[in-house]
Write a protein that binds this DNA or RNA. Structure first.
Lengths: 324, 324
DNA sequence: CTGAAAGCGCTTACAG
DNA sequence: CTGAAAGCGCTTACAG
């Protein structure tokens, strides 16, 4: 027999489809007898309501799309886990839109999500020029990315993060720390804070940008070349993976860490912390960011008139390890 | 104005809803004139077909559920990325079911997925006694886990993996390598291969099992205690994270790696390889496993009569690093 | 307290 | 080549 439908349940219980539906949804007044008969029929048939039909009626899919560069990255994997958890707790399912680090996929997913009538979108990619967001007419929340006036951004305190990392390196005796980041654009607050603190101490700031589109291998090569050519006694990397590249370079070239080279990373995902507990890093409150993004999104999904306020940045903290 | 529906498109193009639908789906014979008018109306209104309504008719949601212990783990994050990619390529969307390492969530998700009429499920968790799979009446593929006669399992060659790791340790001079794993049950082929090779070389096999439910901190504590109490000159860990715990313990206690302690991990995810390129590990073909799982699932989703054959295990390989 | 009917937004035979 | 009608599996006013 095929998957049972409400009709089958109703027939078996000897009631109308409408009544069976009411029992399932516990709406209106039902006699105990009918309630029991329907419940029995449901159990006997192993009936499960078709959520697709329900979505069509309710104009609500209870689906949220999460757009990430790739969940293979520790930071985004952890973010995805917590977004999923927070959504599930509130009765939403999550469609994972993994862009495999390409903007084309992001654009495609944006379209697909709307066709699938998701109730909202959380996006955490950093591609430039993805036009779709302007056209989208459904609630969106961005994580660590400005997408426009109408789209709230949840983020952590990048300025303080840059401050903490730089001050820490200097306090540990570094005089020539470099900041390594993907791109050194004006909105990069970590880089801005690094420059400011270096200047405040009368030290020369140097920012090494390996480029947004660089593959992992290209990034590693660029960093190793830079470090080999440019003497320095400290590295403030804009993410932990990059910091670990510097650490590996130090090992290969016989530099002592932290005596010759102090290293500070950024993000502080649990996965990398477990893998390399000794790495000093600026820890983003990944779970709080995920939960907050979900809270803001749910507020807008359940009340379309909810005002779009910009969120205050969430606090970061420095985690000390032996690399600095 | 509200989100346009097919009715609006039809009205604007001056055709019937049926005709508009045919243009969208490119079915039957349509005059060029009508085609053009409908296409224009679609563009002007920014119309996007409601996929939920389509699913209801087609009895096909184009949705697949991926059940993972947690995507915050490097291995499962990478697996999820590749499953997503392979599914997207074939026109399927992926609902991410992150169990946060608890069996209860898995059971709940199994139910939820069926209610949402996903077309199929890929599961990669390792919980015991999840009853739901027996009752489920839709295509399922398991990754590295036996779930019953009717459910195909995609996996890599664990026996060879255990063989390679153990032989490598011995070849590098280890005489007293320990195998560290979550649970040492009869079906654990990596442990079986380890025992067999140790015996073949006349060496004593010791398996340290930290327990399936152990938290990361508990695992680390258990491993450090064990290593401190039990002298050994090699570690074959059943995953990379565990191997890195041994590596960190060696650093903290002043053991030289690989001279005093040789370390081999397992999995070889790109994320951990990037973070710690020096780790010797048995590399699972994560992408191939993901793609194969999707292929097998799609075959069963598109042809319910497709036979359930057990898959040959995919090949693994040893990746050399400085830890051994 | 329960049922008949309309409708969610589409697609698909069936006529014409 | 195009349209009217039925139907996917439900829910929800509206009667009774």
């Amino acid at each position: 027999m095929n998957r049972p439908k409400l009709q089958d349940v109703a027939a078996r219980a000897g009631v109308s489809v409408a009544t069976a539906s009411r029992v399932l949804n516990n709406r209106g007044y039902l006699s105990d007898d009918i309630r029991r008969r329907v419940d029995e029929a449901v159990a006997e048939l192993g009936y499960r309501p078709n959520e697709i039909a329900r979505s069509l009626i309710g104009q609500r899919s209870a689906l949220v799309g999460l757009i990430v560069p790739t969940v293979a990255d520790a930071f985004f994997g952890e973010l995805a886990t917590h977004v999923e958890g927070a959504l599930a707790q509130r009765g939403y399912k999550m469609l994972l839109c993994d862009c495999h680090n390409t903007p084309e996929r992001e654009e495609k997913y944006l379209d697909l999500l709307q066709g699938n009538r998701v109730d909202g979108i959380i996006t955490s990619t950093h591609n430039r020029n993805v036009a779709g967001y302007g056209r989208a007419d459904l609630p969106i929340v961005a994580i660590d990315r400005r997408l426009g006036e109408q789209i709230p951004t949840v983020r952590s305190d990048n300025r303080t993060g840059g401050f903490l990392a730089t001050e820490h390196l200097i306090a540990r005796g570094s005089r020539s720390a470099v900041h390594i980041t993907a791109t050194d654009h004006p909105g990069n607050e970590r880089a801005a804070a690094y420059r400011e603190r270096m200047a405040a101490h009368g030290l020369e700031a140097r920012v090494m940008a390996y480029g947004f589109g660089a593959s992992v291998d290209e990034r590693r090569a660029a960093i190793e070349t830079w470090l080999t050519v440019n003497p320095c006694d400290g590295v403030f990397a804009s993410d932990d993976v990059t910091a670990l590249m510097a650490l590996d370079w130090a090992r290969k070239t016989g530099r002592r860490v932290p005596e010759d080279l102090r290293i500070v990373g950024y993000d502080g995902s649990a996965a990398l912390h477990t893998a390399v507990p000794g790495l000093t890093t600026v820890r983003q409150p990944i779970e709080r960011m995920a939960v907050r993004a979900v809270e803001v999104l749910v507020a807008r999904m359940t009340d379309a008139t909810a005002s779009v306020e910009q969120e205050p940045p969430l606090p970061v903290e420095l985690r000390h390890g032996w690399t600095s």
